[in-house]
Design a binder for these strands. Structure first.
Lengths: 239, 239
DNA sequence: CCCTTTGAGTTGTACTGTACAACTTATATG
DNA sequence: CATATAAGTTGTACAGTACAACTCAAAGGG
């Protein structure tokens, strides 16, 4: 990369733009929703007034790391401090941003339904059902990122406890099952579902919860708020 | 690129350094190995003479995209043009590179055992068994990246056809099983393994292959060279 | 040329987890 | 108190793995 005499310095390379975007999911009214923000209309901004995923440039003075940057953007938009946050992937090429070669680090977050949807911010921020959001023409390559996020979420829901992060605690098993079904888009068997959740031993009981109708249900909390539980897959080992 | 009135331009942000690193796996002598390169000792280079993952700066003039950049680096180091190549994740913070705030996009590649290990390049390039490589003190945060890659590979091997990309075609089912066992570090049941591979229908027969001893075995090729097959997981749907 | 060795490939039983469906139990409401 | 509603359980069928014994084909030695 360098020859003995002519020292080739890092600064000799033209540096791409670096951004972080966050796909923030929640479940509202039995629908998987994603948070979109409206691009500013100021002069010089690309994709003015277009809907986009929340995100923006890494600030090398404020952000200690990419993760910290993602957390900051999430906190700014939702006020949520410690959600489930996972890296989704990165996208970078010469043309995705008209301002130059740019790369974005995408994260995805799962949060319980936000209490109050701030009405004043409704013109610049909106919770949109996923399938509907995916059909809008979003800024940059955000349609690709959103699709990937939805795909990844659906895929992981098949064998992890991710949906538990979409519910406020304590939640009941039927509530949790409904979230699984909403995300997956298909019904699940009740008894198999319950067995799987309880056998995995990632929930702890948190007292009975009474609903509007019918029998009261056991409420549960996550034992570990930090990470998702992976349910047993195949190639079982004898260990 | 910007108009006179604009308050806040993209170029107002100090741009981080952007690199791409590739974790290249293969199987040699019944061991999972990874390719390491030696850092240059020239003046000004960080981590001189340290072993590192192959990678380097994105060249905005040559690389159309991050993936193209990863492919270029892989081609440069191995000559392999169309391997299995998947994004692993990205790492970025203020301190990982002494030259400044930097972020790297890491990829991982699977290639069949390279024919001839170029002896002339042996001082700057080396295939190292994974567990051994993980114990070396690598440059930057490459120990973290390598660990993540190994973990991801092991995890995906449990439910995908990834090991097939580590073998030259045609390969036999016993050979494939051995690769699975090498990567996973535990023996697998022969009959369950065979049933799973054949039921997935991702292989096509390619004539008998005779080994050194014993009965000849059926050779197989991948139907699709592009993507891995995911074996059935749980929450089976009735569709 | 047979017989043994080696590895490929098959068969069969036990066990575990899901699929499907009927059932019991607990709470709110008229 | 009867009924509706939802929580939670039980039981049978089926599919996939675990474990282990078996058959089959090719190479090599006496």
């Amino acid at each position: 990369m360098s020859s003995p005499r002519v020292v080739f310095r890092a600064t000799d390379f033209e540096r791409p733009l670096v951004t972080v975007d966050v796909v923030i999911f929640t479940v509202m009214a039995e629908q998987l929703c994603v948070l979109l923000v409206r691009r500013p209309e100021s002069d010089g901004e690309p994709y003015p007034a277009r809907w986009a995923l929340p995100g923006g440039f890494v600030d090398v003075d404020r952000d200690a790391s990419l993760l910290a940057c993602a957390e900051r953007k999430l906190r700014d938009k939702t006020g949520v401090a410690a959600p489930y946050l996972e890296q989704l992937g990165s996208w970078g090429d010469a043309k995705r941003d008209p301002r130059g070669w740019s790369s974005t680090h995408a994260y995805f977050a799962l949060i319980p339904q936000p209490e109050a949807v701030d009405a004043s911010a409704t013109t610049t921020t909106e919770w949109v059902p996923c399938d509907q959001a995916a059909r809008r023409r979003l800024a940059f390559d955000h349609n690709t990122i959103l699709s990937t996020a939805i795909e990844r979420l659906r895929s992981k829901v098949e064998y992890t406890s991710l949906p538990a992060f979409l519910l406020p605690e304590p939640f009941t098993l039927p509530q949790l099952q409904r979230v699984y079904e909403v995300v997956l888009g298909r019904p699940l068997d009740k008894s198999a579902f319950r067995k799987r959740m309880l056998d995995a031993d990632y929930l702890e009981e948190a007292g009975m919860v009474t609903g509007d109708h019918g029998r009261a249900a056991m409420g549960y909390r996550l034992r570990e708020r930090d990470q998702a539980t992976v349910f047993p897959r195949t190639f079982k080992s004898g260990e």
